[in-house]
């Protein structure tokens, strides 16, 4: 048997729905890690089943909780609106039809305290599993089953070697590496999955490269 018993009896989560509550919280929490800086406001644009049945499943509360950094099994999840107000983070919800996306998809538009904006799109694909499909216009398919690093970088020669060198210095084995670009020679987004836990200090080492704009570690 190649399925763990804890995939069947689990996850431990806040109800009522693994896709509409637990998955939603995970999506927003992941997006928060990706955008990292101080958040002032989040616009949640809901598609499909998230828009239609989200309310009855607490999808709204779960998304806000995730954006505050709460986990899917945190009992203060139901109280997230109040917690957000306390932290001075505002939010709004709207419906948006998106093309070629999963039924449970949300676009999260973060306005940061410095006025800049970040956009993350993701889907809750069942049983609490999620995938991130877009970060600031970079289209991808990131399922976060493994510890992941997301690097925004200038599309220059040698940068991949440089980054993989840093990974090796930290004794990390690269399981998968994927590069997405918006156009040639512009900015690229590099997604690296590893077999082992990634220490957050690696962000700093990677940022030292002059061709790197940002680096984010997401340990699942």
């Amino acid at each position: 048997m190649d399925i763990s018993i804890f995939d069947v009896v689990g996850p431990v989560m806040i109800g009522p729905s693994s896709s509409h509550t637990a998955g939603a919280a995970r999506l927003a929490k992941t997006a928060r890690i990706i955008v990292k800086d101080e958040i002032a406001h989040v616009s949640f644009r809901l598609h499909g089943s998230f828009a239609k049945t989200g309310k009855g499943h607490g999808t709204d509360k779960a998304l806000v909780a995730g954006a505050l950094g709460l986990s899917a099994d945190d009992e203060s999840l139901a109280d997230s609106f109040r917690l957000a107000a306390k932290q001075g983070i505002s939010f709004d919800f709207s419906e948006e039809e998106m093309e070629n996306v999963h039924e449970n998809t949300v676009k999260m538009v973060f306005t940061m305290k410095d006025g800049s904006r970040n956009e993350v799109v993701g889907s809750s694909i069942g049983g609490g599993q999620i995938k991130i499909t877009e970060i600031n216009g970079f289209v991808m398919d990131m399922n976060l089953q493994l510890p992941t690093i997301v690097i925004e970088q200038y599309d220059k020669k040698g940068i991949v070697t440089e980054v993989s060198g840093i990974m090796a210095e930290h004794d990390l084995n690269i399981a998968n590496m994927k590069l997405v670009r918006r156009s040639k020679g512009d900015v690229a987004c590099c997604i690296i999955e590893t077999d082992d836990f990634i220490p957050e200090e690696i962000e700093k080492s990677i940022m030292e490269s002059k061709n790197v704009i940002s680096a984010r570690v997401i340990n699942v």
């Binding site: 069947v8 009896v9 689990g10 996850p11 431990v12 989560m13 806040i14 109800g15 009522p16 729905s17 693994s18 509550t21 637990a22 607490g58 509360k61 099994d73 009992e75 999840l77 139901a78 049983g127 609490g128």
Partner: peptide, 21 residues
């Protein structure tokens, strides 16, 4: 009831069926 009220449960095998086991 706990599941419906956004309380903490353990899916077994799902959230909707979390009371049986």
């Amino acid at each position: 009831e706990v599941n419906a009220s956004m309380g903490k449960i353990c899916a077994a095998p799902t959230a909707g069926s979390c009371g049986i086991l």
